[in-house]
Nucleic acid binder design. Structure first.
Lengths: 157, 157
DNA sequence: CTCCTCGGTTGGAATTGCCAATCTAGGCAG
DNA sequence: CTGCCTAGATTGGCAATTCCAACCGAGGAG
């Protein structure tokens, strides 16, 4: 089953979730950000059923999150590997947001399993809201407000 | 059906997705961030089946994302409303990340439906990675690396 | 040739979600 | 009091999705 059309929801959050909200999708992307590329790596590390993995890789590849490449290991036949595209790598923001939320709200007693760091250092990296000048904005100060294409209005919290 | 235990995955992303990855969960939180609080508001605005909405509100309330309050409109009996807790409001980061990704990667021809703005202004707000000093870090420079509790290591991308 | 592995596919059971119909507590009108 | 209305669910039956175990097939190894 390959998703050929993206449902055209007005809301970009809804559109994102149509693609990424299926079970395992974001975890596959997370593992790809950790450097995994092979079918067996995803299957063994995540425990995702192989039929689901086939389906998700097809959907995410069709959506331009992954691209499929051929590779050949010495003494083995040609196989497929799955590499994040620029579009896929830009999901890093979503995954770090989920990671920070989980670390703060459902902490694991043994400590953190994954950290966001600046390349070539051990400096921690966090997500923050910034305005157009680059100045930080407190999360409390951020409002989700109706945009030009909104058909309804709402009272932002 | 009320989720009483959070599966204890090592990875905080996995734990977050166990709670938030069910269909409709994040869209309910999105609408709550737009100011909705009542069962009928969520049901009518999202089109979510009422049995699913009952289940999601129960799960999210048990997880501390929502809190249930009684309210009474004139000439009506007491009813329940659902308000985001601090924990729930901190999901704003996740939702803005999904919104930005959707706006950039699956744009809707009619324009954006929702914008992130600084309170009391029309200044756009964006998500950015920052280090501990507050300096911005390019997304390409951010690595997801194994933390102290990691049982495996990986090659970060 | 046979055996083996990787990357799937297939069939069937279990789970989850969807939809329409129904239920229930309380308010209100007569 | 009786009957009717509404919000907020609950229920039953069906559809879609996911899970699991078994199988397949192309190619390399022996």
């Amino acid at each position: 089953m390959v998703a050929t059309t993206v449902k055209e929801h007005l809301c970009s959050i809804h559109r994102s979730l149509d693609l990424l909200g299926e079970k395992w999708s974001l975890l596959i992307v997370r593992n790809a950000l950790r450097g995994q590329t092979k079918f067996s790596e995803f299957r063994d590390a995540l425990g995702v059923p192989s039929d689901i993995l086939t389906s998700r890789l097809a959907t995410l590849t069709a959506a331009g999150v992954f691209e499929r490449r051929a590779y050949r290991e010495p003494g083995a036949r040609e196989r497929s590997s799955y590499h994040l595209t620029e579009r896929g790598r830009s999901l890093k923001t979503v995954l770090v947001a989920l990671q920070e939320w989980g670390d703060e709200n459902t902490p694991y007693p043994g400590g953190r399993v994954s950290l966001a760091q600046k390349a070539g250092s051990t400096d921690a990296v966090l997500l923050a809201f910034v305005d157009e000048t680059g100045a930080r904005v407190s999360p409390d100060q951020v409002r989700l407000v109706p945009g030009p294409a909104a058909t309804i209005t709402w009272d932002a919290v």
